[in-house]
Simulated scan of single mutants.
Amino acid sequence: MLAAKTILVVDDNTMNRLVAKTILGNYGAVVIEAVNGSEAIDLLAQPGIDVVLMDIQMPVMGGMEATEIIRKTISQTLPIIALTANAIKGDNEKYLKGGMNAYLSKPFKEFDLLNIVASSINKK
């Protein structure tokens, strides 16, 4: 399902990146990691990333700001999935209006992560 797909996981929390990398790697994905939005933008300057899992709140540059820059300067179509522990009513719409394609609250279940990543790649 995810074989040979490259996924950028952007999260300032080491454990969150490890969990996502382990799950996605078990299904054949190549996972690249960044600790903030600024690092993500640098990595996205190179082609080949199929989907981005973007934490919302990070030091240096958060997910919303990074997504805005990605949409303006790198890609209008790259799937970006918001990852956040802030599952407040109305946030989903805010992330979608901000240029993200989907939303997944943390902590997430393996099935939900795989489902949202696969469907984002298939819509690409």
Rank of each mutant, 00 (worst) to 15 (best):
M1G: 10
L2W: 10
L2D: 04
L2I: 06
A3Q: 14
A4K: 15
T6C: 12
T6N: 14
T6V: 15
I7G: 05
V9F: 12
D11G: 13
D12A: 03
N13Y: 13
N13T: 15
T14K: 12
T14G: 04
M15S: 15
N16S: 15
R17P: 10
L18V: 15
A20I: 08
T22P: 00
T22D: 05
I23Q: 03
I23V: 15
L24N: 01
N26K: 10
N26W: 07
Y27H: 12
A29Y: 03
A29S: 04
V30H: 05
V30G: 02
V31A: 05
I32Y: 07
I32F: 10
A34Y: 13
V35N: 01
G37C: 09
S38G: 00
S38F: 01
A40N: 08
A40L: 10
A40F: 05
A40D: 06
I41D: 03
Q46D: 11
P47K: 13
G48L: 14
D50R: 05
V51A: 14
V51G: 05
V52D: 02
I56T: 04
Q57C: 04
M58P: 07
M58E: 02
M58A: 02
P59C: 10
P59S: 07
M61Q: 06
G62L: 08
G62Q: 05
G63D: 08
G63V: 11
A66K: 07
A66V: 09
A66Y: 01
T67G: 01
T67Q: 01
E68L: 06
I70K: 03
K72S: 10
I74F: 08
Q76T: 14
Q76H: 12
T77A: 12
L78A: 10
P79F: 02
I81K: 01
T84Q: 07
A85T: 14
A85C: 06
A87F: 11
A87Y: 11
A87K: 07
I88K: 05
K89L: 13
K89D: 06
K89R: 11
G90M: 09
D91G: 04
D91L: 10
D91K: 09
N92D: 08
E93L: 11
K94Y: 02
Y95S: 03
L96Y: 06
K97R: 11
G99S: 09
M100H: 07
M100F: 11
N101K: 09
A102F: 07
A102L: 06
Y103K: 05
Y103Q: 01
L104Y: 07
S105W: 00
K106V: 00
K109T: 12
E110N: 08
E110L: 06
D112W: 07
D112F: 05
D112V: 02
L113P: 07
L113M: 09
I116C: 04
V117A: 02
V117M: 05
A118T: 13
A118Y: 04
A118E: 14
A118C: 08
S119I: 01
I121L: 03
I121P: 02
I121T: 00
N122R: 07
